[in-house]
Simulated assay, not measured.
Amino acid sequence: MSAHMLLPTTSNLPAPRPAPGRSHTRRPGRPMREQGSSPHEGERLRPLTRGQVEDRLQELGDLYAEVSGGGPWAWNQARAAFLRHLAADARRPGFSLLIAETTVLTGCAYGFPMGGAGPWWAGFDGDVRESLLRRVAPGRLFVVSGIVVPSRVRRENQGRAWNLARRLQRRLLADHGAAVGVTLVEARDAGMVETLMSWGWRSAGDDTRTAGPPGSCRVLVLTAGA
């Protein structure tokens, strides 16, 4: 069974327009205040045990549906698909899930360590697989299977170290002593590829943006610390 990266479906939403009647003109001599979370205002990250994941499945599903948007039918469909995906990954050895929270749940990311064999490799080109195995020591390759964050995290300050998605993926790798993160993305999902690349992910093979045939995947990698 293959595991593909899951992101909420609103990754390409445009930035919100300023409210009518409000001026956003920059005053001479005053630096413009950067919008979004600051390094001192970010959400707290912490891992959940397997039991805690099971206890909070419904809450995690609600989070995914909430940030995905859409009508009731889309909400239920997206939520159900996410929970199936999460439940399947939670059975893998070494599975780990991090949550981000303030007074409420605001995001999560999860994945599992990858060995040198197993059905997950079926989505990889042979050359890409051998290249990864040569450059990464056994046990130091980690599959980042899902990242769930609000739309603002996907469209604002993507390159900042304190961007919530970057904090989550960096912490996942660090907690497992992983050197490289890896994920599979549907080749035709240009929006997801663009979002991940804005968070530091890079193509593991030929870095082209050409959409592949239906069902084909692109392999993206993330260096620890990025």
Rank of each mutant, 00 (worst) to 15 (best):
T106E: 07
T106V: 08
G107Y: 02
C108M: 15
A109Q: 04
P113W: 00
M114V: 15
G116N: 09
G116K: 07
G116V: 07
A117W: 10
A117R: 14
G118C: 04
G118W: 02
G118V: 05
W120E: 15
W120Y: 12
W120D: 14
W121V: 09
W121E: 09
A122Y: 06
A122N: 13
A122D: 15
A122T: 13
G123Q: 01
F124E: 04
F124R: 00
D125Q: 09
D125N: 10
V128A: 07
R129S: 07
E130P: 02
E130M: 08
L132F: 11
L133G: 07
L133P: 06
L133Y: 05
R135L: 09
R135F: 04
V136C: 15
V136H: 08
P138D: 05
P138A: 08
G139T: 06
G139Y: 05
G139I: 07
R140V: 05
R140D: 08
L141H: 01
F142Y: 15
V144M: 11
S145H: 03
G146S: 15
G146V: 06
G146I: 08
I147V: 15
V149H: 08
V149L: 13
V149K: 08
R152T: 13
V153I: 06
R154K: 10
R154A: 14
E156F: 10
Q158N: 12
Q158T: 13
Q158I: 08
Q158C: 13
G159V: 09
G159L: 09
W162M: 01
L164A: 11
R167V: 04
L172H: 02
L172K: 06
A174M: 08
A174Q: 14
H176T: 14
H176L: 12
H176V: 09
A178D: 04
A179N: 14
A179T: 15
V180M: 13
V182M: 04
V182I: 10
V182E: 00
V182K: 02
T183Q: 00
T183P: 01
L184W: 07
E186V: 12
A187Y: 03
A187W: 00
R188W: 11
D189H: 14
A190P: 01
G191F: 12
M192Q: 13
V193R: 15
T195R: 01
T195W: 03
L196P: 01
L196A: 01
M197P: 02
M197K: 15
S198Q: 14
G200Q: 12
G200H: 11
W201T: 06
W201D: 07
